[in-house]
């Protein structure tokens, strides 16, 4: 309680921009805490896999700016894609996010996380540091870039030990398109193949 008061006094003494930035950081950190707890609760529950997967999908839809990240990852190919292609890409992209978790429900059981510092990154948003612990595995440092999208906080990037997932994915996807003769279809096919692999894995693991 007293610490809150001191904090409030400190904040009041700072210029207004700083204050707004700090409020934004707190909000982003709370957001990550909330979504993380929700995910952990689903992972640890004993519900059937299909139900757990549906609940994870619902949480991710609320937590991640799927459209924004998808657009970033597709880069220049987004602009040349037709509406139908964009829709199909986003569908596959979201499904991949979900299945990447659902195929690992077993391994992830007992996972815990701690939210650390939240630092403003200018226009980009706020970087929220977390440490993720899985039983019997070394702890992993994961940083979440949270931006305001249409007035809601949304995750726009995941940085694992300094490697940005969206930058890595963009480079990978553009490479798949290039090697497929510049066709977006080559990427969509590769994503479908990956999805069926993840599905098979989910079936085998559960």
């Amino acid at each position: 309680m007293q610490r809150r008061a001191v904090l409030a006094a400190l904040l009041a003494a700072l210029p207004l921009t700083r204050l707004r930035a700090d409020a934004r950081s707190d909000r982003a950190a709370a957001f990550i805490e909330e979504k993380g707890q929700a995910l952990v609760a689903v992972i640890d529950s004993d519900a059937p896999v299909a139900e757990k997967r549906a609940r994870v999908a619902a949480i991710l839809r609320e937590a991640v700016d799927v459209r924004g990240v998808g657009q970033f990852v597709l880069g220049r190919h987004w602009r040349t894609a037709s509406e139908a292609e964009r829709a199909e890409f986003l569908r596959l992209f979201e499904e991949t996010l979900v299945r990447n978790l659902s195929a690992r429900f077993g391994e992830l059981k007992g996972v815990t996380f701690a939210v650390g510092r939240a630092q403003p990154r200018g226009e980009e948003g706020v970087m929220v540091a977390t440490t993720v612990d899985r039983p019997g595995q070394p702890a992993v440092a994961l940083d979440w870039l949270v931006a305001e999208v249409d007035g809601h906080p949304r995750i726009v990037d995941l940085v694992a030990e300094g490697t940005s997932l969206r930058i890595t994915q963009r480079s990978e996807y553009s490479s798949v398109i290039q090697r497929g003769g510049g066709r977006l279809d080559a990427l969509l096919e590769a994503m479908r193949r990956q999805l069926s692999q993840l599905e098979a894995r989910e079936l085998a693991a559960n």
């Binding site: 490697t163 930058i167 890595t168 480079s171 990978e172 490479s175 798949v176 090697r179 994503m191």
Partner: peptide, 10 residues
């Protein structure tokens, strides 16, 4: 999807 490209980016 393309491990070579992923490693290069990382």
């Amino acid at each position: 999807l393309d491990y070579y490209a992923a490693v290069r980016s990382v």
